[in-house]
C-alpha cells in the first residue's frame, strides 16, 4: 500500500467517523438539552397535535348535542356570508398594519434611545418602569385606561379641560380606536420587547463606536451606521417570527369592546368567539378558525422565504 493510499484511507475513515458522529441525535453532551426541551414537546403534543383532528368539525354539523353529520363546505359558505365577517377580517388587518407600523419599531427605537442613557441608575429605572406594564393583564389594563380616558372622570380629559379644550370620549370613537389600542399596546409592551434589542446592542463591539468618534461621527451617524446594522439580524428574526401569529389577536380588543366601537374593534378572533362559542355554534367557530389558520400558514411560508432572502447565512426559520 502506497503512502498516498494510506493517507486516503485514513482520511476516508476520519470522514466516515465524523459523519457517523454527526448522525448521533442523542449524545452525552446534548441529552440534557433534549430533556429540557421535553416539556415543550409534551406541551405541543397535548395542546397542538392531539386537538388537531378537531378541525374536522369545520366540515361537520356539530352542536351541543353532538355530531349531526358531515356538511362539506357549508359552514364556510355560511361564514363568508355573515354580515360582519368581512368587516372583522378587515379590522384584523388594520390592527396588523398598525402593529408593524407602530408597535414593531417602537421597542427598537426605545432600545436605541435607552442605550444612549449614560447614568446607569436612571437607565435601569427607565427600563424597570417601562417593563412593568407587560406584567399587568389586559383586563386590568382595560380598567386602567378606561378610567384614564373617561370623558367625565378621566385624567386625560381633566388635562384637556384644564387646557381649555372639550372632553373627548376616546373609547367611543370607532375610527380612533385602532390607533388608541395600538398605542396602549406600545405602552404595555415596549419595555419588555426592547430587552432583546438591548441585548443585541450590547453585543456590538465598542471599538466600532470609538473608531467612529475618532472619525467625527455624530450620535445619529453612530446609530445609523453602527447600531442599526449591528442589530439588523435580530430585527429580521423577530420580524419574520412574528408573521405566523399575526392574526392571533383576541384579548386586547375584547376587553375594550363596547357597542360604540364594535365596527372597528371586532377583529376575527373576537368575531369567532361571538358567533361560535357564545352561540354554541362550534362547527362555525372551527371553520372560522381554520380559515384563519390557512392564512397564518401562508404567512409563515412567506416569512420563511423572506428569512432565507434577508438573513446573511440564508437560513430559513423552518
Amino acid at each position: 500500500m502506497t503512502l498516498k493510499t494510506k493517507v486516503n484511507a485514513a482520511l476516508q475513515a476520519n470522514i466516515s467517523t465524523k459523519k457517523k458522529k454527526k448522525k448521533k441525535i442523542f449524545t452525552a453532551s446534548n441529552v440534557m438539552l433534549y430533556l429540557m426541551f421535553l416539556p415543550a414537546i409534551i406541551h405541543y403534543v397535548i395542546f397542538s397535535y392531539i386537538p388537531m383532528p378537531g378541525i374536522l368539525l369545520a366540515f361537520a354539523d356539530y352542536r351541543i348535542g353532538g355530531f349531526n353529520g358531515w356538511v362539506g363546505l357549508e359552514n364556510f359558505r355560511y361564514l363568508f356570508n355573515l354580515p360582519y365577517f368581512w368587516q372583522a377580517f378587515l379590522n384584523t388587518w388594520i390592527f396588523v398594519i398598525l402593529r408593524y407600523l407602530i408597535s414593531f419599531p417602537a421597542p427598537i427605537i426605545f432600545a436605541i434611545l435607552l442605550n444612549e442613557v449614560k447614568t446607569t441608575y436612571y437607565k435601569k429605572f427607565l427600563q424597570t418602569i417601562s417593563t412593568l406594564p407587560h406584567f399587568i393583564s389586559w383586563v386590568v389594563v382595560a380598567g386602567i385606561w378606561t378610567s384614564m380616558l373617561s370623558p367625565t372622570t378621566g385624567y386625560i380629559n381633566y388635562i384637556i379641560r384644564l387646557c381649555g379644550g372639550e372632553p373627548v370620549y376616546f373609547l367611543a370613537k370607532p375610527k380612533l380606536f385602532p390607533f388608541l389600542l395600538t398605542l396602549i399596546g406600545v405602552w404595555k409592551e415596549v419595555g419588555y420587547s426592547a430587552i432583546v434589542y438591548l441585548a443585541a446592542i450590547s453585543g456590538i463591539d465598542p471599538e466600532l463606536y470609538e473608531a467612529a468618534i475618532v472619525d467625527g461621527a455624530t450620535k445619529f451617524h453612530q446609530m445609523r451606521y453602527i447600531t442599526l446594522p449591528g442589530i439588523k439580524n435580530t430585527v429580521l428574526v423577530v420580524l419574520v417570527l412574528s408573521f405566523a401569529g399575526v392574526l392571533n389577536f383576541f384579548e386586547p380588543p375584547f376587553v375594550f369592546m363596547n357597542p360604540m366601537i364594535q365596527s372597528t374593534a371586532e377583529v376575527l378572533d373576537v368575531y369567532i368567539y361571538n358567533v361560535g362559542l357564545v352561540k354554541a355554534r362550534y362547527s362555525l367557530a372551527t371553520a372560522a378558525g381554520l380559515f384563519k389558520s390557512v392564512i397564518s400558514f401562508v404567512l409563515l411560508l412567506f416569512a420563511n422565504f423572506m428569512s432565507k432572502r434577508l438573513t446573511e447565512d440564508g437560513r430559513g426559520i423552518i
Binding site: 403534543v45 397535535y49 392531539i50 386537538p51 388537531m52 383532528p53 374536522l56 353532538g66 355530531f67
Partner: peptide
C-alpha cells in the same frame, strides 16, 4: 398514531 387515535376517539359519538 396520535392523530389516528384522536380522530377515532373524536368521532366516537357518531350515531
Amino acid at each position: 398514531m396520535c392523530l389516528l387515535f384522536v380522530t377515532m376517539s373524536g368521532c366516537g359519538e357518531k350515531p
